[in-house]
Structures are given as C-alpha cells and as structure tokens.
C-alpha cells in the first residue's frame, strides 16, 4: 500500500481554533455555575436551607420525584421490554412518541397535560364529573408531570441495555426449563443492572428538576405542588439568596447523579 501517510494531528497540541472554540464552550458551561457560587450567601446558607418553606419544598420534591420514579419503572420497564424484544407495526412511531417528552419544551408538555387531564380536558372533565376529582394543586398532578418528562430517560436507557443483552443465554435457560420469571430475575435483570441504575438516576434527576410542566399543569401550591424548582422560581421574587442556596442544592444533586452514572458518561 503506497498511500501517503495521513498527517496525524498532534494530540498534545490542538489547532489554535479548536483550543479557542473549546475554551469558549467551557466558559459558557462554567460561568453560570461560578455566578451561583460567587453570589452564594455562605454565612446564611444553613438558615436559608432550613427555613420552613425550603424544607417543605425539599420534602415535597423527594416525595414527588420518588413517586414519579415508581410510576416510571412500573410503566417504563414493560415499554422498554416491548420496544427492545419484539417487533410490531408502528414500532418506530411508538419509539418517537417515547422520545418526544425529551425534546418537547416542558411547558408544552404541561399545556398538553392541562388540556387532557385538566378540569376542562377530555379526560379531566370526565374525572371531575364522575368522581369529583380535579388535579390542579394536587401532588398527584405534580407526580404525573414529573413522570411524563422523566419516562423517556428510563425507557431509552433500559431499552438499549435489553437490546444489547445476550438473548442466547436466556434462550438456553428457557430450553432447560426455566420459567420466564426466573429468567428475568436471575439472568436478564442482573445483566442490565448497570443500565437500570443509570436509567433510574437520570429519570430521577429529571423528575427532581421538573419545572415547566409542573407549574403549567399542577399549579403552584405550598406543600402540594411547590417542589424545589418552583420554590426557587418564587424565591427569586423576594429573596434571591434563598433561590441561590436552593439552586446549589440542585447543582450538588445533579453532580451526584453524574457520579452515580459515571460509567455511562465519563469513559475512562
């Protein structure tokens, strides 16, 4: 082979434009965080984070995101399984539908939820008429909003893992007489454990940070729907220091999630 040797770019010395561009990119990502830390009211931090409203919002956020995750797993796992392990007509459409909340602005998701499940929505009006149930201002609505935006993160992560998992072993086990439940518990789940944890962590973080769909669909009610992001939004009105303190909590949690899922995002 007599091809001219391609010029290998030096790894140690990136081209100047690459260096300049990536420096700007990093600045764009880093500057806002520096802004938060720089303005952080460190001396009042503890007082701000333990105020009644902050604690109420913290507790509610934990409840809402955990409940949303239970819902996401219960509904998302079968869906991931269906997408990964079977073929059916319209599968591509279903997959696009699953991804939609990931790219949809959350406020659009909230508006859509409002006009479906709100009091005048086609489902919501029936709920109101037959059962006297209205969702505005209820934690149920906040959980639904969080589950709506978090579901794709879990489904896509688990679907990919199920697709990659070796089904030969499962088939062998089935041939040897193992029940589907046994195969699931002893072979499939242990195999995709890492992806399950990553999917859970990502979905939970997304649920925890949910704002747009919640404020549009569930309303803003202390102790019921006012989760941390809504509390931050409200605190900006009157006490920016409290907003900064609570924002830092969410930054810390997000960093924690990155650490948990580091094998997925931070290849060594």
């Amino acid at each position: 082979m007599n091809h001219p040797t391609p010029k290998t770019p030096s790894i140690n010395k990136p081209p100047r434009l690459v260096a300049a561009g990536s420096t700007l990119a990093l600045l764009l990502l880093l500057l806002p965080l520096v802004g938060l830390v720089e303005r952080a009211p460190w001396s009042r931090m503890w007082t701000l984070l333990t105020s009644t409203s902050a604690l109420t919002a913290l507790r509610l956020s934990l409840i809402v995101s955990s409940a949303a995750i239970v819902l996401v797993v219960l509904l998302g796992f079968p869906l991931a399984w269906l997408l990964a392990r079977s073929t059916f007509r319209g599968q591509r459409i279903v997959r696009a539908l699953v991804l939609l909340p990931m790219v949809l602005p959350p406020v659009v998701g909230g508006t859509a939820l409002l006009f479906a499940l709100g009091r005048r929505g086609f489902v919501g009006s029936a709920l109101d008429r037959w059962f006297g149930i209205t969702l505005l201002g209820t934690t149920t609505a906040a959980v639904l909003a969080a589950a709506f935006v978090a579901l794709p993160f879990f489904v896509t992560t688990v679907e990919a893992a199920l697709r990659e998992a070796d089904s030969d072993i499962e088939e062998a086990a089935a041939t040897l007489g193992a029940s589907p439940g046994f195969i699931m518990r002893r072979i499939t789940l242990p195999h995709i454990k890492g992806s399950l944890v990553a999917g859970l962590a990502l979905a939970w973080a997304r649920a925890l940070g949910e704002f747009g769909a919640t404020i549009t669909f569930a309303g803003n009610r202390a102790g019921k729907t006012r989760t941390l992001p809504l509390e931050i939004f409200l605190a900006l009105e009157s006490d920016p220091d409290a907003a900064i303190a609570l924002s830092l909590v969410l930054v810390a949690v997000s960093l924690g999630v990155l650490l948990v899922t580091r094998n997925r995002w931070l290849p060594r």
Partner: peptide
C-alpha cells in the same frame, strides 16, 4: 386555602 398561588396576576386569570 388556594388551589394554586401564581407569581403574577395574569397566571391567576389564565387559571
């Protein structure tokens, strides 16, 4: 006991 507390009057009106 309000069902929702909005951050501006336009949002209340919309509800």
């Amino acid at each position: 006991e309000p069902a929702t507390e909005e951050t501006n009057v336009r949002s209340v009106l919309s509800k």
